[in-house]
Write a protein that binds this DNA or RNA. Structure first.
Lengths: 173, 173
DNA sequence: TATTGTTATACTCTATAACTATA
DNA sequence: TATAGTTATAGAGTATAACAATA
């Protein structure tokens, strides 16, 4: 906070006259320019992702499911008989971090851990009936509200193209 | 971890015979199916975003800049004479969290805080010469490595289309 | 009274090492 | 010896309240 004070202060002072309220000094109160930032794929990707997650949470709020929890339920439904490590790895969740995540779902009786009879070290994770019911309701909310809104904004063709490009990046980068 | 044990255990046992090594029980060792997950825009967006940030960090590693730090430098360069609150707000960073972020950049002498002569409460944030130099080098690395790789994967047309769709989502959702 | 920068704090995510029980 | 689940822990990132200086 002390570096270059005097040196740069001159540059700034010449750029910004010393009054503000009556006559704005040309740079004040105007919107900031994103400039090259809006061309940065990472920046736009992050902003869009935050918006999408936010919208997802709103749409599925009655069921109190996060995007991550929803993805676990979807994966369990599609892949019965798998253990914690397999589920976690597929979702890119580290095994230690998946423990608390599963604890949350299990305490709400949406899924259950079963000791495998083959390998007594591993826990097979299964959807409960309640888990299946919640997943079904979540899918409906996501389709009717979340995805519907995205189709409204992008249209089905662009939405599909977007999905394809994101998959390409995730796969090839 | 105790819920529904016996009830679901039956279902699982019938689905998965009790041996593993010699004859796999049909579900084992195969890749998990993503199913509808790969159709979830939020999921694909998150995976792609993580990959892009990872790649950005690798490409710009010699300069030790995170995507967030790079975005601050870009914004400072494009918008001289702005205070902390304006920069932070534009980037979606909360003011309290921007303090440590700026401390980091300032301790590396990439930027400096100047007390405004108009309003002695606010700190004008300016790029130092070193900050400008690092930014210039970062832009070159990003263009030559990061963006180049993305163009390799997507092609310029798709890359532009992707950027446009992401901006639409960030703006309209 | 309101705003800027700041501190303190807390909560979520993510990441690594190490333990236990099984293999 | 190696693996599955777990614990503990540490580090980012993000969120809110409150304070000092200034308006």
């Amino acid at each position: 906070m002390t570096v270059l004070k005097s040196a740069v202060a001159n540059a700034v002072k010449t750029a910004r006259p010393a009054r503000k309220e009556p006559l704005e000094s040309a740079v004040e109160n105007t919107e900031l320019q994103l400039g090259e930032l809006s061309e940065q794929l990472g920046y736009s990707l992050k902003r869009a992702q935050l918006k999408i997650f936010e919208n997802f949470l709103r749409c599925v709020a009655p069921l109190q499911l996060t995007p991550a929890q929803f993805s676990v339920l979807l994966l369990l439904d599609k892949n019965p008989g798998r253990n914690q490590t397999e589920i976690a790895n597929t979702l890119g969740i580290l095994r230690p971090n998946f423990v608390a995540m599963l604890d949350g779902l299990e305490s709400r009786e949406l899924c259950a851990r079963l000791r495998s009879t083959n390998d007594r070290r591993s826990h097979i994770v299964v959807l409960t009936d309640k888990g299946r019911a919640v997943l079904a309701r979540a899918k409906k909310l996501v389709a009717a509200k979340h995805e519907a809104r995205l189709n409204e904004i992008l249209g089905p063709a662009k939405r599909a193209a977007l999905l394809d490009m994101l998959a390409t990046i995730a796969r090839e980068l």
